[in-house]
Design a protein around this nucleic acid. Structure first.
Lengths: 205, 205, 205, 205
DNA sequence: CATGAATGAGCTTTCATTCAT
DNA sequence: TATGAATGAAAGCTCATTCAT
């Protein structure tokens, strides 16, 4: 939302869009730069002028995602928590999901790439842990403790609670959008409530 | 368990093992046949003599997994259910996980390949749905209804309940073994109990 | 004659020339793309950048031959016939051979390729029939009837007459240039006159 | 006809037949030994046990053709000439064609191979010239001179006359059976008479 | 005699990348 | 900035041939 990426020429934009779509569909290693060039209607050389290498292009796609999606998730939402202090933890979860839902839906290919490629690119994993693990995990820990003190979360290792929540959400996203996108799913809202309901009795009191 | 794959020469075995390891580690598209040949200490031509093509090799790795892992999961475990009639649904889940745990641990690379490559190979997805969707889903539905009648499962669409259970288990497997294998995890038993606990309050009554 | 092939880079030209020579000498299947690349002093990749595949290269060599040699043979020479109305049919034949002689001698490797490869490539045969059968055959039929009416050609099915003439000329070309190029042959003019003499008493009156 | 090939096992026979068919259809270089093995329902090794190499197989196919078809053409037919002394040269031609017609029709694939592969295999060409050029040419020369003396053949260099006759017949065979086998041709007898008619006025008096 | 697993050289083709224009 | 011809390394794959059984 904040215009933190400076000037992207039309060609650059086209390359990023084409690459995002193709990486999501066929995987990083399964996509060739010439395919990307064709889809972006750009000369193959142009890709390398702007992104140095194929891997550079991957990082150019994935890094902003981490910066724009995950960092805000911390900063924006966390501030909200401290500002708002939801009465129930589940409302916090709902607010977080609600808040990011739009972004997730608009950037699904990006998320697919992130999830699919993390196992193969140590840089990605490091970058991911750097921007998530370090910051978000610590802040989340604080929040979890906060709601544990309020007696709304079970008295477990916060790590575990966070992992439980994260994998509940992630597993839904992966199943719905990566593994089985064509199965017939319920309305989004219904599914979200289901996740919350599951978590409620799983980790909340 | 039944020895339904007839004669595999030593070289063929070596190729399958090498390929499994490499596909799991670097992905299908990221692994070259020459790498596989080197690791298996075999001439590259030998791979193609036996498996026709690189994709043929992938299928030769993954297909038996589906047939040997997923089919038994239906036949063996389901029979157990009908024979044993666990008092509580959660005991069934525990028994299922327990029963397959060994297999999962012994065939982790295979599972990684399956999970990582399904999005890119329609054949795999179809084969997967064929051996899962058709059989297991239907049988599971019956079981779910059985425990719903006993009042142990909430009165929801069985589809949703199955998906919830599956994604709970899968998300644990994916997170622990595919995405973040080096994070520090609890003992397996503890994690299993956690999954069951989550499911208990999520879908059980 | 009209410059209907636009820009061919020097390398592309070199590839076509090298391939033509090698295909003529060793046959299509007996020539490797790496040989062609070496002879053309070009990277092997360059061949595929421009001609897509080895077969694409063959067609790029042979198609223009059909378009530039066989099509004109119809248009140019046929017009001449209608303009000039040779007194004797044999003068028409002589003019046709004379007219194409230069081209044949300059493009012998190409003709060798065409003759040698037609039996193995259905595409070639179709393309050949398309550019010959359709047009030339029909026009030739008209001309044959014209000279039949003039009483200079025997009263046979024009098909047969055309085939007789064509195979007389072709058999000379094949024998002299494809099958037995090193036997000691007479001067070209003498051979041409011999063909005409044979035809004269065979189909002319 | 004379049993000059000793014992051929069934497998050897099968290999020769399969190879003949495939070489004729796809050319020597375009056919793989594994294809031949499959078609002959024989292990690939068996081919090499019997024929040493792929080229050995080609020669095993083509050499007997030369020995059985071309040598008899000299010995048998020539004797007939000396025995019979046809009144007209054209009767000799007719007898020769008639005599070999059956053989040609039964061994078309073999002839296709011979014609198609001669340009690419010096051994073949040498062998061909050895069994034709040396013997047949000389004998034919005698015969031609005989009929020239009788005043039935024009007073030309016998070489030329022989070449004319040979290429007339060959061009018919090539056109009818190699290049355009699916065009609609007249009855064989009619075509033979046409060839003779053409030759009659071309080289006969 | 016959097999077919195994080979390694070489084949056609693809690919990320460079560079003169 | 943008192009696209050109590259060469390496990819997937085929092939004639060998050899233990």
């Amino acid at each position: 939302m904040t215009n933190n990426e400076p000037k992207l020429t039309k060609k650059q934009q086209a390359i990023l869009e084409a690459a995002t779509e193709l990486f999501a569909e066929k995987g990083y290693a399964g996509t060739s730069t010439s395919e990307i060039a064709m889809k972006a209607e750009v000369a193959e050389g142009t890709i390398f002028k702007h992104f140095k290498s194929k891997k550079g292009l991957l990082l150019a796609i994935v890094s902003p995602l981490m910066m724009r999606f995950l960092a805000p998730m911390i900063k924006k939402d966390m501030e909200k928590v401290l500002d708002q202090e939801f009465e129930h933890f589940q409302d916090l979860i709902r607010a977080m999901i609600e808040n990011r839902k739009e972004f997730i839906k608009n950037n699904l290919p990006l998320l697919r790439i992130l999830i699919q490629e993390i196992p193969f690119h140590p840089e990605l994993k490091e970058q991911f842990i750097e921007s998530i693990g370090k910051d978000l995990f610590e802040r989340m820990e604080g929040i979890v403790r906060f709601y544990q003190d309020k007696g709304q979360l079970v008295d477990m290792n916060p790590d575990v609670i966070i992992r439980t929540i994260a994998s509940s959400i992630l597993s839904y996203v992966v199943m719905r959008y990566v593994l089985l996108p064509e199965a017939n799913w319920d309305e989004e809202e219904v599914e979200i409530e289901r996740i919350i309901q599951i978590l409620k009795s799983g980790v909340m009191q």
